[in-house]
């Protein structure tokens, strides 16, 4: 994974079928990048459902969460609609997994993103990272601790 202290590489991906989101547009906010293997799969669904509920805690820390997987923008749209997610899902679809590779969290064998988290500060510097075993939902405690440490260090 990219180390804490490095500037998060900028990227632009579709967040809806007709809109793109550029990472640098989120500067001024802390950003949580949640890479995950696949829409609809059980563990990813539980992980994202949890983050959907913890959004209000994240926003107290001025943090925005985005999910990233290799699924297409149309798949993301259906998944997000079905689960009532309140955060964007980015499609790392073409070229497949390019951003996951850039962030060193791509599983070449499965052709999916790994289950990995990055927390960036308001300037886009990586402050915390975590790679979770594929089958384990990492919860939100690590993210929350990272956000609190950032606020404390100000």
């Amino acid at each position: 994974m990219l180390a804490a202290g490095t500037l998060a590489p900028d990227f632009e991906l579709n967040c809806t079928p007709d809109q793109k989101l550029k990472l640098s547009e989120l500067q001024g906010k802390k950003v949580i990048l949640a890479f995950y293997p696949a829409d609809w799969s059980p563990v990813c669904s539980d992980e994202l459902a949890l983050y959907n509920e913890t959004m209000k805690i994240f926003s107290r820390h001025n943090a925005q969460l985005v999910g990233i997987s290799v699924d297409s923008k149309w798949c993301h749209l259906a998944f997000s609609h079905d689960r009532k997610f309140h955060f964007p899902l980015l499609a790392d679809f073409e070229p497949k997994g390019a951003i996951s590779k850039l962030y060193e969290v791509y599983d070449e064998k499965e052709g999916e993103s790994q289950r990995a988290l990055y927390v960036l500060d308001e300037k886009g510097i990586i402050r915390w990272n975590y790679l979770s075993p594929m089958g384990v939902n990492p919860g939100a405690d690590g993210i929350l601790n990272a956000l609190e440490d950032l606020d404390k260090s100000k």
Binding site: E47, L50, I57, L144
Partner: peptide, 12 residues
Amino acid sequence: DFESGVRSGVNG
């Protein structure tokens, strides 16, 4: 309760 769960690492 919910927030204490998040802090305690409840993931489901």
